[in-house]
Design a protein around this nucleic acid. Structure first.
Lengths: 174, 174
DNA sequence: AATTCATATTTCACTGATGAAGTAAAATGT
DNA sequence: ACATTTTACTTCATCAGTGAAATATGAATT
């Protein structure tokens, strides 16, 4: 146990040593990057773990939740790709899987017949309402010792980082 | 462009709607989770993108960096698995790949001959020293508008979250 | 000496993600 | 009006990562 904490301690020493060999490294920033990556993938692991009993993976779940959170419970593959950050190929697979389970339906759009209309079914909604609540305790536990200022701060800083990443993205590779 | 920002905006609306249907959801915390996941995977994307020209993926890179950051430049597969959070199978594959490129060597341990000693080569060190610096500008740019307090705060909050995740992990699934 | 445990590799089956090409329909240009 | 281009998905082939089980070897225990 204390897997993450352990890795972080090790990383701190590592960064320290590397920054002595390569002093021009932005050590604090590099460390924050690694921290983000570690905590992020640990969180992802945790999520996938909670999804496994429902035979869902992260992208399936995300897709389903996007649909669930829509006022009309519907969307198109293209839109889902954008918000779930998935390739079209993958979205086809996800959609196939969810359709087969009866959680969503696939239909043709009337206005634009290239488009496919994806809609969450009543069963899909019930499914979400049943699987979501058991996750709440763990989500709450993750932030149990965060006070309101902590939460606001984390949100603000992640937002800032997100914004910077957006600005960064289009650049050419180094 | 503004991919992340866009997804975040969409998520905010989604969470809002879901928490109206399911009021017992810890909305703020759930939102922070998703935010972490989004920023985390975007950061990972960015990293993989920077690594691609060097024909490295995240785990290859991490493994190599762990070795590089060691005072003696060496480790064992087991240890690398732990710190790189990889399965043994994968570590064998990674090691094979890096050995083939001459960046590391694999040798038997003298004390315990079950063990395999993995060591970064001089070429491996040179490789790291050459590939690392071009990444610095982007890393710095990510945190360009973070003042010292921001960085300290982010580090503290991520550490706290990491700690909580560690406590969470061993529990049984919901 | 025999048994149990630890370390690492190999093999295999499987899941999930991805890139390239294909299909179909709408939009656009001439 | 027709040809071209663009948009929206799908299909197919492929690949990276994972988990489980089998193997090999060496160390520790009894």
């Amino acid at each position: 146990m204390a897997r993450l904490t352990n890795c972080i301690a090790m990383m701190n020493e590592g960064i320290e040593r590397v920054s002595q060999i390569i002093p021009q490294m932005p050590a604090v920033e590099a460390r924050l990057c690694r921290l983000m990556l570690m905590v992020g993938s640990s969180l992802e692991e945790e999520l996938e773990f909670k999804l496994k009993p429902h035979k869902l993976n992260h992208s399936d779940f995300l897709t389903l939740m996007i649909l669930y959170s829509r006022p009309d419970g519907s969307s198109t593959p293209g839109e889902l790709c954008e918000f779930a950050t998935q390739g079209a190929t993958n979205m086809t697979r996800i959609t196939n899987a969810l359709v087969k389970r009866g959680l969503i339906t696939r239909g043709a759009s009337a206005e634009d017949r290239r488009r496919v209309l994806i809609r969450i079914t009543a069963a899909g909604k019930r499914f979400v309402q049943k699987m979501l609540p058991p996750m709440f305790p763990r989500v709450s536990a993750m932030f149990a010792d965060f006070n309101d200022a902590d939460k606001r701060n984390l949100s603000r800083l992640l937002g800032k980082l997100a914004h910077n990443l957006d600005q960064l993205d289009p650049d050419t590779q180094p």
